[in-house]
Design a protein around this nucleic acid. Structure first.
Length: 279
DNA sequence: AATCCAATCAACCGCATCCCG
DNA sequence: TCGGGATGCGGTTGATTGGAT
């Protein structure tokens, strides 16, 4: 496939780009090398001149995106972990689609990656549940079912591996300068839970034992049909004790005081510490 | 083996904001 | 203060991949 196209329509291109042959589409290894070498020598910034000086027939924007989302040495690759999922849930509940801001709290993750995660996993779940991702129904399902379960899984994983050093992401040792401050995560004086909660879904491989992924929300129960398995039927413990999922989903989750306690400052601090420890 | 389909994610686009002369 | 270029951000698209049939 030939991505080497003649740029047409100057409105879509920056100044100085109108008369160039602009390459689009996937980057080649050669282009990656050119860009990396240039940034190694001259640093980031001035992306239009980076593109020009590096001999790349790309826009400055394209170079910037490639560097930030792929070539940057501290970019973290691989599945979104349980802890990262939980952080995304919480941060999105506060900031909405402020992907770059959310990404600041997940060292090594890019806004693009988080955005893709949200769209492909979370919105898919809402769609399968036949409700809007921003609906109270969906938020409640996440709030009272998935978040507590996620917390339990994280704790369980942590405890079972407490005597072993985690090797995940062992290539980097710092937190990228990011301080995970609970005071920042929670607006003071506000209800810590008002999320557009979304499910954390299975994206890991079977061998990913240290960060075993939880199953899809829709695997646990089918909101759209008549089959609502619960704790007693599937034995997996996905449903917090004392919560009748079918009734709750059909008639509302109510106050949920006891479950609220699962999602508090202590748990957030724990999560953030875990995330920093493993990096 | 071939085809279809859904999921994923890299990359692009348009717009907003920042910065600087 | 203003205008233009550079940069950043969020939404969207489309190529690729892997699983199902």
């Amino acid at each position: 496939m030939d991505f080497h196209v003649r740029a047409c329509g100057s409105a879509k291109l920056g100044v100085g780009e109108e008369d160039m042959d602009i390459r689009r589409g996937p980057w080649t290894a050669e282009e990656d090398t050119l860009l990396m070498n240039h940034i190694t020598l001259h640093g980031e910034g001035r992306w239009n001149s980076v593109a020009r000086c590096a001999g790349l027939k790309r826009t400055g924007k394209s170079c910037r995106l490639r560097w930030l989302n792929y070539l940057r040495p501290d970019v973290r690759r691989g599945n979104i972990t349980l802890k990262e999922q939980l952080l995304i849930l919480e941060l999105h509940s506060q900031w909405g689609n402020r992907w770059s801001k959310i990404a600041q709290y997940l060292p090594g993750r890019t806004d693009n990656e988080i955005k893709n995660y949200w769209r492909t996993r979370v919105q898919k779940q809402a769609k399968q549940l036949k409700c809007d991702v921003n609906s109270k129904q969906f938020r409640d399902a996440m709030r009272y079912v998935w978040i507590p379960r996620l917390m339990e899984r994280i704790r369980a994983t942590s405890e079972s591996h407490s005597d072993q050093p985690t090797m995940e992401y062992s290539t980097t040792t710092d937190c990228g300068g990011v301080t995970l401050d609970p005071g920042q995560v929670h607006a003071s004086g506000s209800d810590p839970i008002d999320p557009y909660f979304m499910p954390a879904v299975s994206s890991g491989t079977p061998s990913d034992s240290s960060e075993a992924q939880i199953s899809d929300l829709t695997e646990c129960y089918d909101f759209s049909g008549s089959n609502y398995p619960n704790e007693s039927t599937n034995g997996s413990g996905f449903c917090p004790q004392g919560v009748d999922i079918q009734q709750a989903f059909e008639h509302g989750f109510g106050g949920g005081d006891t479950l609220d306690s699962l999602w508090n400052e202590e748990n957030l601090s724990f999560l953030q510490q875990q995330l920093c420890d493993e990096i």
